[in-house]
Design a protein around this nucleic acid. Structure first.
Length: 571
DNA sequence: TCACGGAATATTTTT
DNA sequence: TATTCCGTGA
């Protein structure tokens, strides 16, 4: 965004501070966090790290209480996070969303306290902590608030409907000195309620900032009228919304189509054929996108695209940095940046044969006791030959003298044998590691790299090989709807518009969730400039639920044919 | 204490 | 279906 502004205006835009709430908070906490006793080299826990830590604590707690019905670590992480993002006490979250765990409430609350304590002891911040700590820093330390808020004379926020209470409070404090704030948002595009976003923030804005001027934007510069006619109908079905009716002056385009395909593969073949058709008419691949509700919905399509030799890039879903081998290498780098990063130590030690949780724990304790950082590993005497090798690795690494990419290369060298041992598909994974080194090449500082990997990882799917270099190859875009937010394409295909998939069956029991699914459909459909296709397989048996899904998505069902054309295809 | 295998269970979306 | 959890044997 800042780059685009620089191109359109002038280079002063490069000096604008910008980023996600999380990355901005991270920056400010590193600069000013010492005021609240936070060291500048705190480590950021991503979701998986947080779950690992919670898993450890969970095991300890279960050992004492012999409790077998405790929620899983992933559920616990959900509960803790939801409590923060919705600014609610744990018991309300459990009561509302996990009533079946109500009898475990005490243990859950204890675990959260333990988690909080453990994070503080090790200088870990998880995603939620970044926001909460930043908010506290601004709130409780007037000097810091004055410095930060006067350094930023104007504050602008995009996608305001996706902010939560904590973020709203951060903004309030951040504009303390100058009171210059502008936010842009569309309540109809709020799709992050699951992480605590509350589009009612938009409603509350005028009371939080008296004297607010509201500007309505109803002219759409993206889509042709036939597409808006459809999206206007879709969003009218929302229970709760601020009435608005989009219009455009763009002429041309075609009536959106609803395509019933014989089965999933037939759906894929239809997409492939349509895309080739458009491509032949001169539409570049990167101006077309296939959108879907969940990352795995595109698997079959990906196979067909590969078969036809159509280049594509997949955005969203399971990310590159989330795959085990990447996390392994990152863990090795993380202990260099922060030798007391217990989670990473645990991870890398357990990669070694014959080292399990128990030994890892003992070794970590021994290292920590030497108080010598990574070098502590050299002084402790242990019989594992694998440990010797790990010590050998760290002995060759001098973080002060080596560039990050050189350190990374040494780690990969060490890690490759372990990779071969544990993964059948190690050649593909080895390639990923080279890609990682390619990214690492661009960094001067290791800690900067690690922060970026946690906060702004390449939003590229794991199965997708990263683009070599920065060459802009012409590729079709496959994306989850969430990752498509704010983007636009000449032609858009929404696949799996099948009732039960989209809206997801899991959303059907709650009105709020269904509303969000509807808004998600609205977001997806409004990505299209000229052509819009919705497709669904005629009949799908969902074996985990034991039901047959055979209706088009209720969001686009029963719409007059002059607004949404209907067609069946078979291949 | 580790590694492995069978049983249980939840199942999306992202910073 | 895939992951996670737990018990068992080495």
């Amino acid at each position: 965004m800042l780059q685009r502004a620089t191109r359109m205006l002038d280079s002063r835009c490069e000096n604008v501070a910008g980023g996600t709430f999380h990355s901005f908070a991270n920056l400010k906490l590193r600069q000013h966090g010492s005021a609240m006793g936070l060291p500048a080299n705190f480590a950021i826990l991503d979701r998986a790290d947080a779950e690992d830590l919670i898993g450890l604590l969970r095991k300890e707690a279960a050992g004492q209480a012999k409790d077998r019905s405790l929620p899983r670590k992933n559920t616990l992480a959900d509960i803790f996070s939801r409590a923060v993002n919705k600014s609610m006490p744990i018991q309300d979250v459990v009561g509302n969303d996990y009533p079946h765990f109500m009898d475990q409430l005490d243990t859950i609350t204890c675990l959260q306290a333990a988690y909080t304590r453990r994070k503080r002891d090790h200088h870990f911040l998880d995603y939620d902590d970044l926001l909460v700590c930043f908010q506290r820093l601004l709130q409780e330390f007037p000097d810091v608030r004055r410095r930060i808020s006067s350094a930023h004379r104007y504050v602008m926020v995009d996608e305001y409907q996706d902010t939560n209470r904590v973020q709203a409070e951060i903004l309030y404090l951040l504009t303390d000195a100058n009171k210059n704030i502008m936010v842009v948002g569309d309540d109809s595009q709020s799709i992050y309620a699951f992480r605590g976003a509350n589009f009612r923030n938009i409603l509350d804005f005028p009371s939080l900032f008296p004297g607010t001027r509201i500007i309505g934007l109803e002219e759409n510069y993206r889509s042709v009228q036939p597409i808006l006619d459809l999206t206007n109908i879709v969003i009218e079905r929302a229970q709760e919304k601020y009435a608005k009716h989009l219009f455009t002056r763009k002429a041309g385009g075609s009536t959106p189509q609803l395509i019933e395909a014989e089965d999933e593969n037939s759906q894929s073949l239809f997409i492939v054929q349509k895309i080739q058709e458009f491509a032949q008419r001169g539409v570049p691949l990167h101006r077309m996108a296939v959108l879907f509700r969940a990352g795995f919905h595109s698997f079959d399509l990906e196979i067909e695209l590969a078969r036809e030799g159509l280049a594509f890039i997949k955005v969203g879903g399971f990310k590159f940095t989330e795959s085990a081998h990447i996390k392994d290498v990152l863990a090795h780098l993380r202990v260099i940046a922060n030798p007391y990063d217990r989670i990473s130590w645990h991870r890398i030690l357990q990669l070694i044969e014959k080292v399990g949780p128990r030994s890892a724990q003992r070794i970590y304790d021994a290292i920590a006791a030497t108080d010598a950082g990574v070098a502590g590993l050299f002084t402790i005497r242990l019989k594992h030959p694998g440990i010797e090798r790990l010590a050998g690795l760290y002995q060759t690494i001098d973080p002060t003298a080596m560039r990050p990419v050189e350190i990374g290369a040494a780690v990969v060298q060490y890690y490759l044998p372990l990779l071969k041992q544990s993964f059948d598909d190690h050649p593909k994974r080895a390639k990923d590691l080279e890609q990682l080194l390619g990214i690492l090449e661009r960094y001067q500082r290791l800690d900067q790299f690690l922060t970026d990997m946690a906060l702004e990882p390449p939003n590229i799917s794991a199965e997708d090989r990263l683009v070599a270099g920065d060459v802009e190859e012409d590729r079709l875009v496959l994306s989850t709807i969430h990752s498509a937010k704010g983007l636009e394409w000449h032609s858009v295909f929404i696949i799996w518009a099948l009732d039960g998939r989209f809206p997801s069956l899991y959303a059907m029991s709650k009105d709020d969730d269904m509303e969000e699914e509807l808004r998600l459909m609205y977001v997806a459909a409004t990505r299209a400039q000229e052509h819009l296709f919705l497709t669904y397989p005629r009949q799908v048996y969902d074996r985990s639920l034991g039901i047959v899904l055979n209706r088009p998505s209720r969001f686009v069902d029963m719409i007059p044919r002059d607004i949404l054309e209907k067609r069946s295809v078979r291949y």
